[in-house]
Design a protein around this nucleic acid. Sequence first.
RNA 1: UGCCUCAUGGUGUAAUGGUAACACAGCAGAUUCUGAAUCUGUUAUUCAAGGUUCAAAUCCUUGUGAGGCAACCA
Length: 566
Amino acid sequence: MSEAAATPPAPLDFIREMIAADLAAGHNGGQVVTRFPPEPNGYLHIGHAKSICLNFGLAQEHAPNARCHLRFDDTNPTKEEVEYVDSIMADVKWLGFDWGEHLFYASDYFEKLYQFAEQLITKGLAYVDDQTQEEMRANRGTVTSPGTRSACADRSVEENLDLFRRMRAGEFKEGEKVLRAKIDMASKNMHLRDPALYRILHAHHHRTGDAWCIYPMYDYAHPLSDALESITHSLCTLEFEIHRPLYEWLINNIDGLPGQPYQREFARLNLTYTVMSKRKLLRLVKEDLVNGWDDPRMPTISGLRRRGITAAAIRSFCKTIGLTKFNSLTEIALLEHAIREDLNKISHRAYGVLRPIKVVLTNYPEDLVEHFEAANHPEDPAAGTRQVPLCRELYIESDDFMELPSDGFHRLKPGGEVRLKFAFCIICQDVIKDDAGNIIELRCTYDDTTRHGKKPEGRTKPKGIIHWVSARHAIDAPVRLYDRLFTVETPDADAGEDGDFTQFLNAASLEVIPNAKLEPSLKAAAPGTHWQFERVAYFYADPIDSKPGAPVFNRTVTLKDGWVKK
RNA sequence: UGCCUCAUGGUGUAAUGGUAACACAGCAGAUUCUGAAUCUGUUAUUCAAGGUUCAAAUCCUUGUGAGGCAACCA
């Protein structure tokens, strides 16, 4: 029995199968060249992570005969900004991928793209159209009826060339002229009804400045950029499937392309309880419905990062969801599982009491302070230990006490006993209330025979083990509890055609606890570190708002809670 | 009233004409100085109807449902 037989190889998705077949057939000289081509008009989100993991992952899997390019699809200067370029590069790097020398911009190809357009005109495959946008739309026909070709389609090559050059020279106003491919106005595929190739935009471009006033359309620039970079496999999402014939038309009709890429499509990621379109995310930011692109509730890479989600968790998640053409809706639980799995491994444990209730140990000396040794990680002795101070007055989680306990509740109750983790057991003797009847303090006694490590004879162990902090030593720190951004699984779909998805925003998606009681060692928590507050949740010391000695914590994800109240 | 694509447990995926499986979620138990983690067990699946075949999730036909397509956006 061989090792290989014991562990079958992971099954290939349809894209990887296709690439394996290309390689087996000896295509592309054994090279695999992919690209991740974002438009710098917004921040990357977890849907992009799926594409990044695919494209860069393919390059890693086929190394050294492979590479993945990062290319900015910056063909629309009216929407694009350098802020987005910078954030995209930072996010890709943070996710753990490297484009090496292969950083490109579609705008780098403007001159070549222009020459290819002249080639198309010369071949009689493109013409300058004078129709207005409205006329073009009207003449395009409908999905069930053919369109009508513009009278301009009959212009001579010479006239088209002259007009196109004058478009470039800036002789015309925006909307006055457009370069169109001459394909088929009766095609069932609307994208083949003489699609626009170039439009006039007297706009300042973030890289080319004012050098150009005509800009190529995505459908034109994308396949040619792929070909210019000798991309072998151009992978995009399903909505571009219908663009494929146009992609191929361009590749086949332009001479002098160094590469012959082909496009294939996969389903984009949809996640429950969030929205994923850049347009909607932009709206959340612009209308201050969240605190910027990196708000920890956002599905953006920067938001997830700031919430405390690790790159490893995102990569693992992307592996789990697979790759198909099925338009799926992935439960957020799958992501949460990937997050907990990684955080459980890397997070040191500490005590934090979010909603404190004071406990007085009536039989504990007033002036005594003891330190108990606590493990930093239960499954990793190498993580070491720390000393946690304890005195007569403590805080415990108010959830860990019930005056009228429900069935199966095995934390603290009147007359009941629990263990203070790593310390000793206590019994609740008295419940002190204020005039309004609110519990303000618990009077307890501790049992010295139950100290950590001791095993007293003939004594039943309490089922409940709770965390605690010393009232005298606790530090106060702000803790932000993040929850899902929306109250419904599919805010998009539920809002309908003309509905507003913001109506489903979760009003309780952020709760700030200004003064959580934390064990003193947490005072030194470095910004950008991951913690598990035992029995509560995973937290992340906010990298921006934390100051030396004054950390601010973001709740990344709660611990799974297996206890269901009966 | 057109064209393109898709359809496997609650969710995401695998099975490439030959025993429908894995992960998540759920449930039950073991274990535990975290009601976590870990371990064990378990519930639940091929959109429908025909056809081809010794044999169909897989191939064919017809339905049904979902998504996409008529920017000078990407």
